[in-house]
Design a protein around this nucleic acid. Structure first.
Lengths: 207, 207
DNA sequence: ATATAATATGATCGAATGCTCACATTAAAT
DNA sequence: ATTTAATGTGAGCATTCGATCATATTATAT
């Protein structure tokens, strides 16, 4: 394995203009990533695109990887926020089918904002902290799903529930991505979301 | 988007030693990829690791990306070979459950040979022909599964069968990868394979 | 044997990239 | 006002990497 590079920010922006600078850097990175892929992202290209000098970049980030890592973190946080937002809108007494639908729909929505960026983040970003972040989201989802399943009055073998949840979280993740990347022309988005939900519910013999 | 680079081989190795050279180059690339990730792969590092001069590399490949593309192609071919091999061992009159199990088991086996390499190929390799190759495998699997389902005497809504197959192929792909990358300590590998198979069969309400 | 084609070598060049550092500018503190 | 801290600038250095080409070696053909 490669020796893990330092990825922690150098210093925190205290003044407003400094925060603007940092945001501009992250926005520029996202823009380049979406448009040219990981290859196109160089510290210089970031600085130019952000309308910021290269020196400024190195004031806040120790290097290229750190910028990408920060972007990934911001992206994941926003993803989580969208999912949480939509799920909390539902009452705690919702049907499992409704909950599942909302969860899948939330994932689809959060990943549809900038599909090109999402693709790059999913397919091209290496260890740079992404794994940890993604597993984090998965862990959150797993917990949520497990809770809901246990509290719902459905009969299912509880012995292997953790294994099933582990597998299904990955499965749903992949199906949603597949939808984002190549949406089947024959069906509407809402139908596809329903179908994913149905497949999952069936797989657990629910309803 | 970046302008697609030329990725076709420069010339075919006719003599044995030339084939040895090409093989050594691909093996070295695989080795570096597995050990250091995409970043570690440079034309120079490949040549050194392969025990071959840098000039020789450029005799057969127009550049770095071409080497990776060739490796991906070789890898995918071998994957397919393993799956086809195991499936043809089964008679054409097998049960769906048996077929599913064999398919999942074959995927697991083919990806377990070199998990580190598999991880890099799955998570870090961009457009470099990988997408095409992967979609190829998916297309083959989809066809196979669709055939089997139609010829089997099971009742299922045929209207959405293509959508279901599309989604499930991605789902199985992801679940198998999840298994390879972080095998649940609590369960045996065979049990996990069975569980994936069961989930899929359930999702289609089979049996 | 000789000629021709195929293959292998590696010093070397140019371009790209990461990154620093001395200096300039702006904001906050006193 | 003056000082001090924070932020911004970009020319330029060092390094790395991709790629070439003149040359040497080995295989095949005649």
């Amino acid at each position: 394995m490669k020796p893990q590079k330092n990825v922690t920010p150098r210093k925190y922006p205290r003044q407003q203009r400094a925060q603007k600078t940092v945001e501009a850097i992250l926005d520029a990175t996202a823009h380049i990533l979406a448009k040219e892929g990981l290859e196109g992202v160089t510290t210089n290209s970031i600085a130019i695109m952000a309308g910021v000098s290269i020196g400024s970049l190195y004031q806040y980030f120790p290097g290229r990887e750190a910028v990408i890592a920060a972007l990934v973190e911001r992206y994941m946080d926003r993803q989580k926020a969208i999912v949480v937002m939509r799920l909390t809108r539902l009452g705690p007494e919702s049907e499992l089918r409704e909950l599942g639908h909302e969860l899948v729909a939330a994932l689809v929505e959060s990943r549809s904002k900038d599909p090109a960026l999402h693709r790059v983040l999913v397919q091209e970003i290496p260890r740079v902290g992404r794994m940890a972040q993604l597993l984090d989201l998965h862990a959150d989802l797993s917990e949520l799903v497990t809770e809901s399943l246990k509290s719902a009055r459905v009969e299912l073998r509880l012995e292997r529930l953790d294994l099933d949840v582990f597998l299904l979280v990955h499965a749903v993740d992949a199906m949603v991505n597949a939808l984002i990347f190549t949406k089947p022309a024959k069906y509407g988005l809402e139908d596809c979301i329903d179908e994913i939900n149905s497949l999952v519910l069936n797989s657990l013999r629910i309803k």
